[in-house]
């Protein structure tokens, strides 16, 4: 039930993101071009959700923002899951000081207030590494890298705990006796058996990434305008709460639905596991 509801929410958002160019062609506006004669337009057949302070169509900008949010969410999920699973497996398998160092590092990162650190990291000038500044794609990449730096921690803790349990079971010993190498034991035997808790952690990391990206964009440190993201649309809307309060409702609702979708999927997977 939860799983279905969550997947339906995420599916609807993904569909909206995929259909953004189509909707753009159908409505016939450019969501990036200002139209100063149509500022603060009310919802109409032409602009289903109205227009913003520069006369741009809010619905189309929301759909384009969905692409940004989902891209960041997926990139972080991929990076955090790979890194976290690798670190968790390594810690559980190697033990000793390697495990101690990695897990203390995880504890340390978990005990810190994340957002102030993210703000500092997001302000780093990537131009000094020779990356282009202010382009949507490089912004997405920059935010994803920063979020992965924190996002691997829950995945690593969960996968380490699950892997420790699996490594103590008889079938692992049996595989070793049968002559399986350590790499084979970890990748073919342990990994499939800890996939479910990792999936839960991944779903939660997508939720965290979408929330963190929109927060950073809201603060002006994430995706830079004119590229639309739900976060920077909201920071724009905050400045005009007196003239167009409705414009502040939609981007937040989109974030809420996306994050709730991921949380429901995580809950649903956990429930299925019993």
């Amino acid at each position: 039930m939860r799983l279905r509801l969550g997947l339906a929410l995420l599916g609807a958002l993904a569909l909206g993101a995929a259909l953004a160019p189509l909707a753009q062609a159908w409505l016939g506006h450019d969501p990036f071009a200002p139209d100063l004669l149509a500022r603060f337009g009310p919802p109409s057949a032409e602009h289903p959700l109205g227009t913003d302070d520069l006369g741009r169509d809010i619905l189309l900008r929301l759909l384009h923002g969905a692409r940004v949010s989902l891209a960041v969410g997926l990139a972080v999920a991929l990076g955090a899951t790979l890194l976290g699973t690798g670190i968790g497996l390594l810690a559980a398998w190697r033990g000793g000081w390697v495990e101690a160092v990695l897990m203390r590092l995880a504890d340390g990162l978990l005990s810190l207030p994340a957002l102030p650190l993210l703000v500092v990291l997001a302000a780093v000038d990537t131009g000094r590494f020779g990356l282009p500044r202010g382009e949507a794609l490089s912004d997405i990449l920059r935010i994803a890298v920063i979020l992965v730096a924190f996002g691997w921690v829950p995945v690593a803790r969960l996968s380490r705990a699950a892997a420790l349990t699996q490594l103590s079971l008889d079938y692992v010993a049996a595989a070793r006796v049968a002559g399986a190498g350590e790499a084979r034991v970890l990748l073919r035997h342990v990994l499939p058996n800890i996939a479910a808790p990792i999936a839960v952690a991944t779903a939660l990391s997508v939720a965290g990434a979408i929330l963190a990206e929109s927060t950073l964009s809201f603060l002006g440190l994430g995706i830079q305008p004119p590229a639309p993201s739900w976060g920077n649309m909201l920071s724009n809307a905050q400045e005009m709460v007196f003239s167009a309060p409705l414009a502040a409702v939609w981007p937040g609702l989109a974030i809420l639905l996306a994050v709730a979708g991921c949380t429901l999927v995580a809950d649903g997977v956990r429930q299925r596991l019993g």
């Binding site: 929330l211 927060t215 809201f218 909201l234 809307a237 709460v241 809420l256 994050v259 429901l264 809950d267």
Partner: peptide, 21 residues
């Protein structure tokens, strides 16, 4: 689940719109 998924900055803006504006 709703409260957990609500971005705090959005909730803040909504409260401002309702109670201040």
């Amino acid at each position: 689940i709703l409260a957990q998924s609500t971005p705090s900055f959005w909730l803040g803006i909504l409260l401002v719109i309702l109670f201040a504006v």
